[in-house]
């Protein structure tokens, strides 16, 4: 399964623009900082390209927004992100990063509600556990995996079940495209050096 070439083209253009911005920004940087800059710019490029696609064909790209917000949450990224996304775009991203705190508190409330109303649930699960513990174990395993997946997909912390899988699907496709394009860049830039 591959991403459509139109998306790839848009992604590539975005990637080149942001890499160039990163290159201008990182005149005097160590290799590690430069790597972070490249990483950041490629991530932002991916997020912007995928958000463009999401806008063209209505689908959710919550992970893109969360990814940009996560990067914008760090102060040291500010200058570079301003370069890449423009001032207004960065302001939006920073605002989104700030508002994630509110989301967290909402999540706490939801969880506490679940705990409070979980008496019947516990009884039921114990009932099934007495019947077939294998099934309960399988369910526990699945829950643990979903938790890991939630931590891997940006913005996945608040998602459950179906929407988490949808986001994962989109994210995996975009990640794959990102890897492909970056490989292509590596390959392409080498002959220029030599």
């Amino acid at each position: 399964m591959h991403a459509p070439s139109k998306f790839k083209k848009a992604f590539m253009a975005q990637l080149l623009l942001s890499l160039r911005a990163a290159g201008q920004a990182s005149k005097s940087m160590g290799i590690r900082e430069r790597r972070d800059a490249v990483r950041l710019s490629s991530d932002v490029a991916m997020a912007m390209a995928s958000a463009a696609r999401a806008r063209a064909a209505p689908r959710s790209a919550a992970w893109a927004r969360a990814l940009v917000a996560r990067h914008a949450a760090e102060r040291r990224n500010e200058a570079l992100m301003r370069r890449i996304m423009g001032g207004a775009g960065y302001e939006m991203a920073a605002a989104a990063a700030r508002s994630r705190k509110g989301e967290r508190s909402r999540r706490i409330v939801r969880r506490s509600r679940r705990v409070c109303s979980g008496a019947g649930r516990k009884r039921r699960s114990s009932l099934t556990a007495s019947g077939c513990s294998a099934m309960a174990a399988a369910r526990r395993m699945v829950r643990a995996r979903l938790q890991v997946l939630r931590s891997l997909v940006p913005g996945g912390e608040g998602l459950r079940g179906f929407s988490l899988l949808t986001e994962t699907l989109d994210y995996v496709v975009c990640l794959r495209t990102q890897v492909e394009l970056m490989q292509c860049l590596c390959k392409g830039s080498r002959p220029q050096l030599g």
């Binding site: 890499l19 290799i31 430069r34 790597r35 991530d43 990102q178 590596c186 830039s189 050096l193």
Partner: peptide, 13 residues
């Protein structure tokens, strides 16, 4: 992606 960005950063310091 991490590795590739390292490589891209190292390509042309």
């Amino acid at each position: 992606v991490e590795y590739l960005s390292m490589r891209l950063a190292a390509v042309n310091p």
